[in-house]
Design a protein around this nucleic acid. Sequence first.
DNA 1: AAAAAGCCTTGACAATTGTCAAGGCTTTTT
DNA 2: AAAAAGCCTTGACAATTGTCAAGGCTTTTT
Lengths: 192, 192
Amino acid sequence: MFEVFQKYLSEKTTLTDTELEMIQSVSFTKKLRKRQYLLQEGDAWKHYCFVAKGCLRIYRVDQKGVEHIMKFCIENWWAGDRESLLTGSPSQCNIDALEDSVLILFKKEDYDELRKKIPAFDDMVNTLIHRSYIASQNRIHSAISYTTEEKYQNFIEKYPDIFSRVPLHMIASYLGVSAETLSRIRTHAARR
Amino acid sequence: MFEVFQKYLSEKTTLTDTELEMIQSVSFTKKLRKRQYLLQEGDAWKHYCFVAKGCLRIYRVDQKGVEHIMKFCIENWWAGDRESLLTGSPSQCNIDALEDSVLILFKKEDYDELRKKIPAFDDMVNTLIHRSYIASQNRIHSAISYTTEEKYQNFIEKYPDIFSRVPLHMIASYLGVSAETLSRIRTHAARR
DNA sequence: AAAAAGCCTTGACAATTGTCAAGGCTTTTT
DNA sequence: AAAAAGCCTTGACAATTGTCAAGGCTTTTT
């Protein structure tokens, strides 16, 4: 499965064979069956994790036991909890697999080492975090500005590939509305 | 006013006098009177901007003409639009001053040059973007998980210094609720 | 193959929120 | 000093949303 990651790298940057070999040598693969956990609340997260196949979901659970989905991660996305990774604190997130999945993992130290040794890799990672930040800002904008219907339409437009493989009640959770409300918005929208 | 930025730098990293001189030599100061604009929708944003004094607000305007506040920036915060900066596209944001303000600015190219030449500065900037991302994630969590009252309490806890100098209707906008609803939540909360 | 679990929709009703309007107080402008 | 603008609150009412419950369909498990 490393070839999926290799393809991803080749689309994002240019590496020599030696550099690619360095990257591969510190990577390791993990397979997750549907419903298995990659991370549970309270544990510290210490890796970088690339999704080569499948679909993960990152969520937090509130005091009432309700799950709130922070992110879906399909092929070519990165999963993990940056807060726990950066601060070393126990994670508030759970990550589990919505489908059987294959992941390419790096220990934080190895990954940081790669960034120091391979400038092109470092640049790529920099761009990545920038883009993640921008995506977050746009999601915040959606959350505070859009009506529920607009949030839903925006999600479909932006993530058609996620929309088609994830249950609707999870999309509702991601958008911050109840499953029933999303259902009603859908029937309402379909009628027009 | 550069000394405010210098103090900020000394708290975040360690630099030699030469490095500090390099940074100062490419920086420039801008003063903004209350209600003046730093950036208007449609213009490209090409700087990094540190707030040495005052208070700015970054907001977007929707189709109905309603403003939605993305961020408040007080002393020691960074203002700007990373999306426009990274992609070169025209900004969807407006930035204006809520108080008379003093800003330390860098052209993007100069800033990037500093990062290349000064590893400690580069590390600092890296940490900064990471923390910004984490803060965004937590705001998303608040937006999709909390009740309006919880969002409000969370804001006061996290940003007491912003809370005390910004009008309530702007905090309402930041939280994604109407000013009237926030007002009612406040009277309700005060009664207990 | 049968049973269980998961997913989505719909109804009923209560709770929350937005909108419009008005009024009082404070701050800014003239 | 007077006028204007900005800010916050409150009422009335409609619109939106959440919660609970039930039912039908599909997928997964036994």
